[in-house]
Structures are given as structure tokens and as C-alpha cells.
């Protein structure tokens, strides 16, 4: 949820685009959750391989599972927001810079960093892949596996 700054004098959070030209981001939605074996760090860990099989269909291979998916145009666009410190509050506010405990009341802004108009939705049940790839433990060791859950879709496609 969004918490508004506690500074009594200002109860507004500006929501704006600071880049001037927000790019479209990609969104991938799958049923269930990705399970990662208690690996060290997620950074740069491979999730899987995505292949576009036709204009509107995609295939996602995660571990030994294959999912069929479609490209869905969202009914309403989504904007991706990031919380940032208000630019004029960063160096001109002597109170918050001298006393770090007050920094929670530093004015913040929400900046749009991207827009999402489409998503790749994988709602089919994954089917198991029998593949010779399995015998390459070195490469596959860290691959996340897919845990199945019946779940609601984030947004109903139109």
C-alpha cells in the first residue's frame, strides 16, 4: 500500500513521469510460484527460456516444465511506479539531513518508470518435458522449478 509522508505540513505525494518518455515494459504472468532451491543470490539466475511460437502465442520452458502462453492486451494500461525522494527535499532540508531519524518524513514522489500495455499470460497447466537436457547437471543446477497453484489471474484479459 502507499503510505503518505507523515509530515503534517505536506500530505501530498506527487505522481509523475520524470523521464519525459516512459518506455513500455514487459510483463510475464504465470500461475503458481517460482521455487528456487535455496540458492545464494537470484541475480543473473536464469529462470527459463521463452520462445515466440506464433504472432500471439509463446512458450516458456522453466526447468523441466513447458508452459503455453498468449500475448494479452490489457484492458487498461498499467504504470510502474517507483518511490523516490523529492528532488528539492534532498539537499535543502537541513532537518532531515542532520537527523537521520526524521528522514521518514522526507517528502517523497512516485515516479513513473514504465508502462505496461501487454502481458504474456501463461495460464495453461505446465506439461512435463522429457528432454536430453536433463543430463547436463552443470548448466541446469540452479534452474528454478515451477510450483503449481490454482490461482486467480491478475487481470482478466478482455
Amino acid at each position: 500500500m502507499i503510505e503518505v509522508a507523515s509530515a503534517a505540513s505536506d500530505m501530498q505525494i506527487p505522481v509523475k513521469c520524470s523521464c519525459g518518455e516512459c518506455k513500455e515494459w514487459g510483463m510475464v504472468e504465470l500461475q503458481g510460484s517460482l521455487e528456487i532451491q535455496h540458492s545464494t543470490s537470484l541475480h543473473n539466475l536464469t529462470i527459463g527460456s521463452l520462445c515466440r511460437t506464433s504472432t500471439s502465442t509463446y512458450k516458456l520452458v522453466i526447468g523441466y516444465h513447458e508452459l503455453e502462453g498468449t500475448k494479452v492486451t490489457l484492458k487498461k494500461p498499467l504504470v510502474i511506479l517507483k518511490k523516490v525522494k523529492a528532488p528539492d527535499a534532498m539537499d535543502t532540508d537541513p532537518v532531515s539531513s542532520s537527523d537521520p531519524s526524521l528522514s521518514t518524513s522526507t517528502p517523497v514522489e512516485m515516479h513513473v518508470v514504465g508502462i505496461i500495455r501487454h502481458k504474456l499470460l501463461f495460464k495453461s497447466r505446465p506439461k512435463a518435458l522429457i528432454s536430453k537436457q536433463e543430463v547436463k547437471p552443470k548448466k541446469q543446477r540452479e534452474l528454478p522449478s515451477l510450483k503449481l497453484e490454482s490461482s486467480r489471474e491478475l487481470l482478466d484479459p478482455s
Binding site: 513500455e24 510483463m27 510475464v28 514504465g114 489471474e153 491478475l154
Partner: peptide
């Protein structure tokens, strides 16, 4: 949502 939603920046 209980689905997994991944965001990919360009």
C-alpha cells in the same frame, strides 16, 4: 494476486 508476475525492463 497469487500468480507470479514478473516485470521486465527494456
Amino acid at each position: 494476486t497469487s500468480n507470479t508476475v514478473l516485470l521486465l525492463s527494456p
